[in-house]
């Protein structure tokens, strides 16, 4: 598959293999340039044009400068959707990081020696691989007005709850899906972090009579900080990209009252209705936000390796 046959060249005595490096990375970079980099640049370009469709008439493309950005940044929608995205992300992320930390510490605790940890790890990671669209559809069906959850409530003599008509219900269930999909992944990442900590530190603290809580707050957390930052930032970038779950869950409307409309759902709406100017400006804004977050990830990761190098030199 895709094996490109290159003509064999006669080998000279002094051969530079450098060209092979270029040849081997060429497919990656060519495809990236065509399918990602060039589209990214044209997206920037389109963001300065007025270009949309009203019914059958096409408006534009006319150069309008920063008008699209102005329209987005001064309108109420972008801010509202950014707020929705942040709230839903936080509602999933806070329990996710807390539970993952707890599980990571438990799974690696030498005193506790929990059994069947690989079984639990397998189970909690599973939802991460499930199709988000299908999972979302499933939860929606289960919690719909006549769905099994309400059937069980009714059978046990309770009032049915219209989860999908309430803001908290909808946002909460979307956050629950995100939580279920990601806490296993975070647990495994944090476990790798905890196991990377020098175990003599824990032993020494135990001999000195430190309580589990003290060990957790004074050793585990500070030493996990780089990984925690990494998890936070990547989860934030993932949160900004939140789409499949709320899109399917609310059928693209973000209802009730567009309180579950996320940023990428907004982008999708503009792309779908071929409103290219606004879609471009929105893409650029999202790109800038993720670039800022990525910068912090990069800095925290390089700071970590710098510290490690310093520490190694110290020894």
């Amino acid at each position: 598959m895709g094996a490109i046959v290159f003509p064999k060249k006669k080998k000279r005595n002094s051969i530079s293999y450098a060209k092979w490096g270029y040849i081997f990375i060429a497919p990656f970079f060519i495809v990236y340039a065509i399918f990602s980099l060039y589209p990214l640049l044209t997206t920037f370009y389109y963001s300065f044009f007025e270009h949309y469709r009203v019914g059958l008439t096409q408006v534009g493309p006319n150069f309008v400068g920063f008008d699209n950005y102005n329209a987005l940044l001064t309108g109420a929608d972008l801010l509202k959707y950014a707020g929705n995205t942040a709230i839903i992300w936080l509602a999933g992320f806070i329990p996710q990081i807390l539970i993952s930390l707890l599980l990571a510490v438990w799974f690696t605790d030498l005193r506790l020696r929990l059994r069947a940890t690989s079984f639990f790890k397998t189970v909690i990671y599973m939802p991460n691989l499930i199709m988000a669209a299908a999972f979302s559809m499933l939860i929606w069906t289960l919690f719909s007005d006549n769905g099994p959850v309400n059937q069980v409530l009714a059978a046990s003599g309770n009032q049915p709850i219209r989860f999908l008509a309430s803001i908290t219900g909808t946002r909460g269930l979307i956050a629950l899906i995100n939580f279920l999909m990601w806490f296993g992944n975070t647990t495994i990442m944090l476990m790798a972090g905890v196991m990377g900590i020098d175990s003599t530190l824990f032993e020494a603290a135990e001999i000195d009579g430190a309580s589990s809580w003290q060990i957790f707050t004074k050793i585990t957390i500070p030493l996990l900080r780089p990984i925690l930052v990494y998890v936070l930032m990547t989860s934030m970038i993932g949160g900004i990209q939140m789409f499949d779950v709320p899109q399917i869950f609310t059928n693209g409307t973000g209802n009730p009252a567009r309180t579950s409309m996320t940023l990428i759902m907004y982008l999708n709406k503009h792309l779908y209705s071929k409103n290219y100017g606004l879609a471009g400006a929105l893409s650029v804004i999202l790109f800038i936000i993720t670039a800022i977050i990525s910068f912090f990830v990069y800095r925290s990761l390089t700071a970590e390796s710098r510290e490690r190098k310093k520490a190694q030199k110290g020894i």
């Binding site: 589209p39 990214l40 044209t42 389109y46 471009g280 893409s283 990069y298």
Partner: peptide, 24 residues
């Protein structure tokens, strides 16, 4: 340079270039 470039693009969400991709 190539290695750093790939590390950088790892963080760029694919959705932000979708408009350009669709037009292309």
């Amino acid at each position: 340079a190539a290695f750093t470039f790939i590390l950088l693009i790892m963080m760029v969400p694919s959705q932000v270039s979708t408009l350009g991709l669709i037009r292309l």
